[in-house]
Design a protein around this nucleic acid. Structure first.
Ligand SMILES: [Mn+2]
Ligand SMILES: [Mn+2]
Ligand SMILES: [Zn+2]
Ligand SMILES: [Zn+2]
Lengths: 142, 142
DNA sequence: TCCTAAATAAGAACTATTCTTATATAAGAA
DNA sequence: TTCTTATATAAGAATAGTTCTTATTTAGGA
């Protein structure tokens, strides 16, 4: 059950287990996609009508700190949150706000090898984000 | 002279030549780095104290439309503007807000070849942004 | 059960950016 | 050159996603 999965992720993280955190964890795991705080709020307030907006941001920030989720920048000024933990990059559609996951180990290896070979002076790489911007034909909301 | 260069870029673009646009063009070419609207405002209001904030955003947007400059996303919610037209990627320092240009034709070719080989279904690539996040030792402001 | 550091609710505050509207002006036409 | 008008600008209000403040609640250890 998805609620149990969320709860165990919380336990492993060492965060206090609260109804609000369980609800948001459940929302993230159910929605899967790159949710906005606003969308998560709509989802969780069905069952938790008093869950405050600030609490949602606090909790999402706490999850990020623990590495449970990651922030994803968008073209607009809206933060999105990614619950996918496997290494991947993103296809950004420039006609709508849809962001599709792009998994490819070959690409990951290619970049990793490239930069270990290059050895940038005075810069230690922690993360490489590849944004593939273009047009994704079968939109989500068609 | 840098003002003449700015003026000729404006002429080529087909935009009306106004003192405000010349001033911002000059600021962009002088500052070079990935300026914020705020920083550009500080720069231009030395000589043009009445230049309105909204005008700066309007003009920067117009320059983007014409392809004179490009928007660069940052970790914070502040837009930055890039006057560098040669193809390049960015090194993001996660300790400060410094963004360094990274030019490498080999990398560009590598990615171009990779994606033309892959041929993503239902997605036409317009642009690939590689964000290299890490720690850049000799900070600008040390 | 009790205690307390941590979490939450509610809503005000913040801030980069956008919008509105009256005024000014660049640049083509006459 | 002067006239014309579509376009650009100044000033400041409005917006919106996010953060902050503070009183209250609560999870989880003692
Ligand atoms: Mn993702
Ligand atoms: Mn750049
Ligand atoms: Zn789309
Ligand atoms: Zn730095």
């Amino acid at each position: 059950m998805i609620k149990d999965k969320g709860r165990s992720i919380l336990t492993e993280s060492g965060l206090k287990i609260t109804p609000q955190r369980i609800a948001i964890m459940e929302a993230l795991l159910t929605i899967k996609d790159h949710s906005t705080a606003e969308f998560i709020k709509e989802y969780v307030t069905k069952n938790n009508p008093n869950l405050a907006t600030g609490t949602i941001y606090n909790i999402l920030e706490a999850f990020c700190q623990k590495g449970i989720i990651k922030k994803v920048k968008t073209e607009k000024d809206i933060m999105r949150y990614d619950v996918e933990t496997k290494s991947h990059n993103h296809l950004y559609c420039d006609e709508c706000d849809y962001i599709k996951n792009y998994f490819d180990e070959e690409l990951d290896r290619l970049l990793k090898d490239y930069f270990s070979k290059k050895n940038l002076s005075n810069f230690s790489i922690k993360e490489i984000n590849l944004q593939i911007v273009g047009n994704y034909s079968p939109h989500k909301n068609n």
